[in-house]
Design a protein around this nucleic acid. Structure first.
Length: 658
RNA sequence: GCUAGCGUAGCUCAAUCGGCAGAGCAGCUGAUUUGUAAUCAGCAGGUUGUGGGUUCAAGUCCCUCCGCUAGCUCCA
């Protein structure tokens, strides 16, 4: 006899074999109709799978309301799409078709390229399949028979996957829908008819098993929701993201440009973007000084030997601009590298004189310009570029000081992110993989460093529980990366704090300090660039604020508008006072109607407008128009000025969305 | 780097089957002197990304290179 325990504690007993769907049917007809799958003793299974004959099982029925449901439906949706593609393109080889955030994809090996023009056909075929409403039927086969089946079906990628990827499994499962059979762990919806509103989004290349030496597949991306409304809402969000694209806003608002004649991936900051950057830099420098960092300036190139010593040149040779070889041009001279990182220069500053334990921790900071030859397909706006400015610093300290210093880095990052209204972020701890030979240094050193990082993160007030990812570390040490959510929930990987026991070692630069025992010791290095690069950081801020920066960052903080050119003299007096008070002021003295001037200033996302006409001139006042609230009335110039000053000094973030 | 798509005026876009390159905004000139999201008129703006090919004829078809977009691979 089988004893089925439901989440509310009630139980049902069966002497015959039943499926989750049978149980749902015994509870209620509507529940049975709504049931998409089931969780049996914590494991997700199809609703049509037989429960054990006897014993006791905990059963939870999954309906649209459950968080797993969407994922399940999207997975079935991937199968429906694959089936549609196989009907339309004979000879297709199937690869993988998992769910992803908000949707799913499926990888196909086909000779003939699929383009977005083909989407309507594929979608139509998918609708046919959903209308046919066939059942997803689970079939378990012994490994050898499974291989045989895939061979018969001509699915050689699946054959390879069973033989190499699923080598340990005694049996493997398939899902069958009419003529369509696919290797799949499941579970699935009971039938294709439960698939909701679907839209194909894009097609792109992908490598078989993620290996760039293997076959290139065609990956079809789609999104799926239970209702048309949910789908429409999702498409609206995608549209919203496009509207905030920093590449579009960057051009519209004249913040930055990238010119192919100068070079791909090389950002030029236009005056308005430069203003935003300058304010951020000033803010960051203030915080660095407050926290005992010592700013330096060092050159953007260095001799190749320097990077051979650090190990970066051999390791990352392919992704650096090739050395400048003076000998090749002039018959004699050395080779220089456009620096791909700042640490060697800072290390040489450390080594410029003997260091004592009294000098430590030594914190050397620089907004350092570095260049890396990123692959052409990687370049994107300001977020992935070939020349960028790291908010870099290197901390040289004793092993005992590592915890405190690491904590200090986290604290400063928290403070800066909070100031910008970026309250949602996570910390990803990237650890080494002991089984890989990619990493340098002794395993004990790694263990110690990783334990220290994890402990500090866990003890840090206000910091979310860190996610640990093994195998993501830099080759010289573990790191903590900041992944920030912007106001529409997208993730941005920004900066990083990294422990380094490698560069100070005798095999590299051989750093030393004299300890209290009058003996030389090896310091530990911390690399930290909590915002990554200014380029990426500002790119993220543009999208986060949708181009409407808080007053302290806004390139133009106030625009003085005259109702008629008759009032220009008074307006110029007001303008002068604002400029003298340190505000960034623009003016509009065109012989235009006031409505047109306001419209232009609104579209340029200028936070405040001071409107001046006869009434203001008589009263020594300005009419203040707030970009967000509209007309807020007239007030004396001093009062308006004080209001703005206060908002600037407080670095107020008034609104990020919209 | 790979796969696919794309590249027309400063910007956003049009140009039927291969048949005289066009509009709006921005710009310039003139008129208008305006009270809280677009005043009117005129003018100018182009070797259709580059180089080659097919054709009587190429923005349109083919090839090369450059660039951009999506994704993959990479990311010190």
């Amino acid at each position: 006899m089988l004893n089925v325990i439901l989440p509310d504690g009630s139980t049902l007993n069966y002497t015959r074999r039943v499926t989750a769907l049978d149980v749902a049917g015994d509870i209620g007809k509507r529940l049975a109709k709504a049931t998409l799958a089931a969780e049996v003793d914590g494991k997700l299974v199809g609703s049509d799978q037989l429960l054990p004959a006897e014993g006791e099982v905990r059963l939870r029925l999954i309906t649209q309301r459950d968080p797993e449901a969407l994922d399940l439906m999207r997975h079935s949706c991937a199968h429906v799409m694959a089936r549609a593609v196989m009907r339309l393109y004979p000879g297709v080889q199937l690869a993988f078709g998992p769910t992803i955030e908000n949707g799913f994809y499926y990888d196909f090996l086909i000779e003939q390229p699929i383009s977005e023009d083909d989407f309507p056909r594929i979608e139509a075929e998918m609708r046919n399949i959903v209308a046919e409403g066939e059942l997803f039927e689970r079939v378990e086969l012994p490994r050898t028979e499974a291989v045989e089946l895939c061979r018969e079906l001509g699915q050689t990628l699946k054959v390879e996957h069973i033989e190499e990827g699923l080598g340990d499994e005694a049996s493997v499962s398939f899902y069958r829908q009419g003529e369509f059979v696919d290797l799949c762990r499941g579970p699935h919806l009971a039938a294709a008819s439960k698939v909701g509103a679907v839209k194909l989004l894009s097609v792109a290349g992908a490598y078989w098993k993620g290996d760039s030496n293997r076959e290139q597949l065609q990956r079809l991306y789609g999104t799926a929701w239970f209702t048309q409304d949910d789908l429409d809402e999702h498409l609206r969000k995608l549209e919203e993201a496009r509207r905030r694209d920093h590449r579009v806003l960057g051009r519209q608002l004249e913040l930055f440009m990238i010119d192919p004649k100068v070079g791909s991936g090389l950002v030029m900051w236009l005056p308005k973007g430069a203003t935003v950057r300058r304010e951020l830099e000033a803010f960051i420098y203030d915080e660095l000084l407050r926290r005992g960092y010592q700013p330096v300036y060092t050159p953007a190139i260095g001799r190749v030997e320097l990077y051979e010593t650090s190990g970066h040149y051999p390791y990352y040779k392919e992704s650096q601009f090739p050395p400048i070889d003076l000998a090749a041009h002039w018959g004699e001279g050395e080779k220089y590298l456009l620096r791909p990182m700042n640490c060697p220069h800072h290390i040489r500053i450390y080594q410029s004189k003997p260091r004592s334990y009294r000098d430590l921790p030594l914190r050397i900071a620089e907004l350092g310009l570095v260049h890396r030859y990123e692959q052409s397909g990687e370049l994107t706006g300001m977020t992935r570029v070939r020349g960028f400015t790291q908010d870099d610093a290197h901390i040289f300290c004793t092993a005992e000081q590592v915890g405190d210093e690491f904590r200090g880095c986290l604290e400063m990052t928290q403070f800066v992110l909070k100031t910008l209204g970026l309250e949602n972020y996570r910390v990803r701890l990237s650890f080494g993989d002991r089984s890989s030979d990619k990493y340098v240094g002794a395993p004990e050193t790694w263990e110690r460093a990783e334990a220290a990082l994890a402990q500090v993160c866990r003890e840090m007030p206000g910091l979310p529980e860190p996610h640990i990812e093994v195998g993501e570390a830099a080759f010289y040490g573990p790191k903590a990366d900041f992944v920030v959510n912007d106001c529409i929930g997208r993730e941005w990987q920004l900066g990083t704090v990294q422990l380094d026991y490698n560069l100070p070692s005798p095999q590299r630069f051989g750093l030393e300090y004299i300890g209290t025992d009058n003996q030389p010791h090896e310091p530990v290095m911390i690399h930290r660039a909590p915002f990554g690069s200014l380029e990426r950081f500002v790119g993220m801020l543009i999208e986060h604020f949708a181009g409407a920066f808080p007053l302290w960052l806004a390139p133009e903080q106030v625009r003085v508008l005259v109702v008629s050119q008759k009032f220009e003299d008074y307006a110029r007096q007001v303008e002068r006072r604002l400029v003298e008070a340190g505000l960034r002021v623009g003016t509009d003295y065109r012989p235009e109607k006031i409505g047109a001037k306001i419209r232009d200033a609104q579209l340029e996302l200028i936070p405040y407008m001071f409107v001046i006409g006869g009434r203001e001139q008589e009263g020594g006042a300005v009419s203040v128009r707030d970009r967000l609230q509209g007309d807020v009335g007239a007030m004396p110039v001093d009062e308006a000025l004080a209001k703005l000053r206060e908002e600037i000094d407080a670095k107020t973030v008034r609104r990020v969305a919209g």
